[in-house]
């Protein structure tokens, strides 16, 4: 050991050891333990759920563990794990198996649909009567109100798409953006669509992430700042239509814009889903999805449980029978009144 280099090498290998993750075996108990642990370390809304529903994840473990037996079938295990993760009451929580997907749906199942494709067809018209840019269907309604149906944010809109839509609807007195039953997709797509409606760089919301496995280990919330769209931007009244199935990135779209001048949210409360979901997996191969990065609106208010509309309205049954979408009509009326009042 006369040469210090040899000493250094020896010390180096003293420290070398395998880095591995302790994963339970592919047994019912192993899958249960892994599932519980994934949520325990990575799920981001434990505090919120405890405040709102009294959820105690350790107590959940104690309650469900006795239900696991070595000889239980895959179906039985799926049912127990499904019941366990449904305690989180989170639409971003899923377990995917070959035969089924565990999902929590009370956030929309317990409420009126408030969106019927057959009614929207009465406004958009036949396929040749409206235009489609990327995933956005649009046309000018009879009262010179622009209508954009955005059913998903699963693909990013091109600059050209948005420029063409703005050009086609520029002469309208107001604009309706229909994100009802939009289950989300890419946050960047929601940001880009939102960028049509402000003229300066805008703090749209805040986001943070977990810094460790502890339930309260979070980074400082950082602002999501978006530049205004570089092309023609909308300056006139806008109504955003929402229902309980407006979820995830679509919920974020509403969160980005609600409260801005000229923006009115019409319809039902959104479904929420303010946690960016991550995925992981169990030893038996089932995919697990969970909320990982919480987002807050620009006032640091959590929107996981949904966003209230400015004008709450449901589709009226008699309107439905007559082929009228009460929510679209309310928005048209609001835009017309705003225009008449010179807002």
């Amino acid at each position: 050991m006369r040469n210090p280099f040899y000493l250094l090498i020896s010390l180096c290998f003293c420290f070398v050891s395998c880095i591995t993750e302790e994963v339970a075996q592919d047994t019912p108990m192993g899958n249960f333990e892994t599932c519980w642990k994934i949520f325990d370390e990575h799920y981001c809304f434990f505090d919120l759920k405890r405040q709102q529903t009294g959820l105690d994840w350790d107590e959940v473990y104690q309650r469900y563990r006795p239900m696991i037996a070595d000889n239980m079938t895959n179906m039985q295990l799926f049912e127990v794990l499904g019941n366990m993760v449904r305690e989180l009451q989170d639409g971003h929580v899923n377990i995917y198996a070959a035969h089924d997907v565990i999902r929590y749906g009370a956030w929309f199942d317990d409420y009126p649909d408030n969106y019927y494709e057959s009614l929207v067809k009465n406004y958009l018209g036949r396929a040749e009567e409206y235009k489609r840019a990327s995933t956005l269907d649009y046309r000018v309604l009879d009262d010179n109100v622009g209508y954009i149906r955005c059913e998903t944010f699963s693909s990013l809109f091109g600059t050209g798409n948005l420029e063409q839509i703005m050009e086609a609807l520029a002469g309208c007195r107001g604009l309706i953006i229909d994100v009802r039953s939009n289950g989300g997709g890419m946050l960047t797509a929601a940001q880009r669509l939102a960028s049509l409606f402000f003229n300066e760089p805008m703090t749209l919301s805040y986001i943070c992430h977990k810094t460790g496995p502890g339930h309260n280990a979070f980074s400082n919330p950082e602002p999501i700042v978006e530049e205004p769209f570089h092309g023609l931007r909308w300056q006139k009244p806008v109504c955003i239509l929402t229902n309980r199935r407006t979820y995830s990135a679509a919920n974020s779209f509403v969160m980005f814009l609600k409260g801005l001048p000229n923006i009115t949210v019409v319809g039902d409360k959104t479904g929420g889903g303010a946690g960016l979901p991550f995925t992981s997996e169990l030893p038996n191969g089932w995919l697990v999805r969970f909320s990982a990065c919480p987002m807050y609106d620009r006032n640091m208010v959590m929107t996981e449980q949904g966003i209230d509309p400015d004008i709450r309205v449901n589709i009226d049954h008699s309107d439905y029978i007559n082929g009228i979408d009460t929510i679209i009509e309310t928005a048209r009326r609001h835009i017309t009144e705003s225009d008449d009042n010179g807002d």
Binding site: T188, H209, T211, E222, F278, C293
Partner: peptide
């Protein structure tokens, strides 16, 4: 990345 940091934060934001 940090423990639960998304690439949306790292790359897009």
């Amino acid at each position: 990345p940090r423990f639960g940091q998304s690439y949306y934060e790292l790359v897009s934001l």
